[in-house]
Simulated scan of single mutants.
Amino acid sequence: MARHEDVLISLRQIIRATDLYSRKLSKVSGLTSPQLLIMQAIGAKGEITMGDLANEVSLSQATVTTILDRLEKRHLIERKRGESDKRRVYATLTPDGSGIIEQAPTPLQEEFIDRFDRLEDWEQSLILSSLQRVAAMMNAEEIDASPMLDLGAIDRAQPAVELSQRTSSREQ
């Protein structure tokens, strides 16, 4: 087998692992990875403003607001105006939201980070430079991406399972 085929297989394995995790997360918790990440950030802070939350999860404030709209409709979070400054809006978890994040699987990127941090410094640098080169070879260096392993649009409404099924049916 040619080396380029081995590289393409490895890329496909990474994409597939991300897809399988997204399906598991959706099945277990009914959440997408970005939704879980946002809920975990809210849970860690207790209450947090939209701007601080956007910075915490490395997403735009508009994207965070869209995700929060969906979570609020499901009664997983609530938004409250600040007591002293009514212009500030804080997000907090509802009891249902707290219950869901307690049962949700660990985010895939947390497992990756844990294993990556255990590598030697030179190994981390090698992986980073190799992946940056692959991204450049795929003309992807200008694509906006957050440090979260997930498939599909960050602010999508449908669970990852539905997105995967639509993609599979198009490929057939």
Score class of each variant (00 low, 15 high):
Ser125Trp: 09
Ser58Val: 11
Glu123Ser: 14
Gln103Glu: 10
Asp19Pro: 01
Glu123Arg: 15
Ile101Phe: 06
Asp121Phe: 13
Gln172Cys: 13
Asp150Ser: 13
Thr63Trp: 05
Thr65Glu: 12
Glu111Cys: 10
Ala135Val: 12
Met148Lys: 00
Leu163Cys: 04
Pro105Asp: 05
Arg133Gly: 07
Asp117Arg: 15
Tyr90Lys: 07
Pro34Ile: 06
Ala104Arg: 01
Pro159Asn: 13
Glu110Asn: 14
Thr49Trp: 05
Thr106Glu: 15
Gln35Phe: 01
Ser164Gly: 10
Gly82Trp: 01
Ser26Thr: 11
Thr63Met: 09
Gly30Lys: 06
Ile101Lys: 08
Gln109Arg: 13
Gln132Cys: 13
Arg166Ser: 12
Ile77Arg: 00
Gln109Tyr: 14
Met50Asp: 09
Phe112Ala: 13
Arg3Trp: 10
Leu108Ser: 06
Met148Tyr: 00
Gln35Val: 02
Leu53Ala: 02
Asp85Ile: 12
Glu141Ala: 08
Ala44Val: 00
Lys45Glu: 12
Lys27Val: 05
Ser146Pro: 05
Thr18Glu: 04
Gln61Leu: 04
Gln109Phe: 15
Ser60Leu: 08
Thr18Ser: 06
Lys27Thr: 07
Leu25Ser: 02
Pro105Met: 02
Asp150Ile: 08
Arg16Gln: 10
Ser168Tyr: 07
Gln158Asn: 10
Ile67Thr: 07
Asp6Gly: 11
Leu128Pro: 01
Gly30Met: 02
Met138Ile: 10
Lys80Val: 08
Ser129Cys: 09
Ile143Ser: 07
